[in-house]
Write a protein that binds this DNA or RNA. Structure first.
Length: 231
DNA sequence: AAGTGTCTCAACCGCAGCCGC
DNA sequence: CGCGGCTGCGGTTGAGACACT
């Protein structure tokens, strides 16, 4: 029985700050606990979502690169709507982001297809909506399409597939070598020599993370969090 | 410049699986 | 072994941004 109504809707900057502090304090697992002790009037679910999709320091922002687009296409053809699984192969991208991307992408595709169909009625033998199926059964058609894109810069599909195969055998390694994958973490975590070393903190528990706080920003977060807790 | 349509993305919801008791 | 709570996943929605007329 929840007496207090949980807040919904967009997060404020202040809420973000508080959440970041408490994630650094308690790790990114105990969402219900964080939701309670933080004083944020949010559900644990909501906190988790905000962190994973927006606040996590390892997130990439901005447009998908052609390589990423291609990879999404290929992985979707292979795995279907397993967004979180696909996201693990795209360092810094979230399942939500990929899902959104796919939605837009497929909508466009569907529109194009509609147009094409209206022009050539013969092609109607395999009338299946991209967006509806979205599964391995699309592998052939969609895979072929994405292969057409196989050109420009970057690594080839061979490289990507090699990587996928290897990672499946070796407990999932990310696409790019300079990222370190954390178990169950689809977000890239640059190694500690990088500027923002606190990227790797997000999985640590309180004690662990205290050992790794060489930079002002996160220290201030901690101070903020602690004072918040003790006040 | 204003109105309308389209796109993007953050956030919510419901469900399933896992885990501890 | 069953139950309840928590977490994570996939689907969906809605508001704001942007493009077009």
């Amino acid at each position: 029985m929840e007496q207090d109504e949980h807040r919904k809707g967009p997060w404020t900057e202040q809420e973000d700050m508080i959440l970041i502090n408490f994630v650094h304090l308690f790790g990114d697992r105990r969402w219900d606990y964080i939701a309670k002790v933080s004083g944020l009037n949010r559900t644990g679910k909501s906190c988790r979502l905000r962190w994973v999709n927006y606040l996590h320091p390892g997130l990439k922002r901005g447009k998908m690169t052609p390589q990423e687009e291609r990879l999404v296409l290929e992985l979707h053809a292979k795995w279907g709507n397993r967004w979180s699984r696909i996201a693990r192969k795209l360092p810094g991208r979230t399942d939500n982001e990929i899902k959104n991307y796919w939605r837009t992408h497929m909508r466009k595709k569907a529109q194009e297809k509609k147009k094409a169909m209206s022009l050539s009625p013969l092609s109607s033998t395999r009338e299946v909506s991209f967006y509806d199926t979205g599964g391995p059964n699309m592998a052939a058609s969609e895979g072929e399409k994405s292969m057409e894109l196989e050109d420009e810069k970057g690594y080839s599909m061979d490289d990507i597939w090699k990587d996928i195969d290897m990672s499946e055998e070796n407990m999932i390694k990310p696409l790019t070598a300079n990222y370190t994958d954390l178990e169950g973490c689809n977000i890239f975590c640059p190694s500690l020599e990088n500027d923002y070393s606190w990227d790797s903190l997000w999985k640590m528990d309180e004690d662990e993370s205290k050992k790794f706080l060489p930079f002002n920003q996160s220290i201030s977060y901690f101070e903020y969090g602690t004072s918040y807790l003790t006040s």
